[in-house]
Amino acid sequence: MADALTLSRPVARDAGAVTIQDVSKTFHVENRTVHALDDVSLAIASGEFISIVGPSGCGKSTLLRFLAGLDRPDGGRITVDGEVVDRPSLKRGIVFQDHRLLPWLNVEENVALSLRSLAGAPSAKKERVQSLIDLVGLTGFEKAFPHELSGGMSQRAAIARGLAPRPPLLLLDEPLGALDSLTRSYLQDELLAIREREKSTVVMVTHDVEEAIYLSDRVVVMEPRPGRIAATFDIISRRPRHRDDPDFVATRRKITDLLAKR
């Protein structure tokens, strides 16, 4: 339940652990059966930053929607901290590629909406909203409406909204995909700093192999038809990473080769 979350405490040390067990999903398109996901299994440790990369149609976004509880798999099950995921929950924050801020609410109100269903004093909620707005660097834009913000600022506000209820698990669906490369690399560093403070487990879907290696503890490569995990790569080098480090380059080569083969 939503009220099991607390506003004041950081995420517990062992929270946000994910188990994905034999998850399958088929779609029927014009009498054809498409295996969007075929027996996908993956365990994600608490506090881990996982990226899922793969070509379109590999089912990575479908998998993320299952994790969010927005859709349900045909077979298999997903648990977070032992609890079966069967509907959306504030314990699993999600940031979509199209920021999905409500255009009729300003930044402050958009972020505050994520705390509406939580127990807590209005003053505590207000404080939390402000601290999140400060954290993502939108101080001074509290009253701005989405149409007055740039793409990067909108995405920051969306990240603040996703983080405000202190979800043990943060799901990112190509959160930086629609941004220009400068804003993008800047926000990647921000994302790392934010996660350092909030201590959530993060699962991010992305098209960008470099982004995945730069940010993650582990990169999961998926392949399409049927959608399944092709390989996983542990990224052990210390942060901050540099895109021209030898091991960075080597890992990127391995992943892009693997993706090119499909």
């Binding site: 969010a68 959306p88 699993r92 979509f96 199209d98 999905r100 409500l102 909406l113 509406r116 269903s117």
Partner: peptide, 19 residues
């Protein structure tokens, strides 16, 4: 997409209608 925002933020029926 807007309806999904309401779902992931666990808004109840009334809040979904008004916001």
């Amino acid at each position: 997409p807007f309806r999904e925002v309401g779902r992931v933020l666990e808004l109840d029926r009334r809040a979904t209608i008004t916001t």
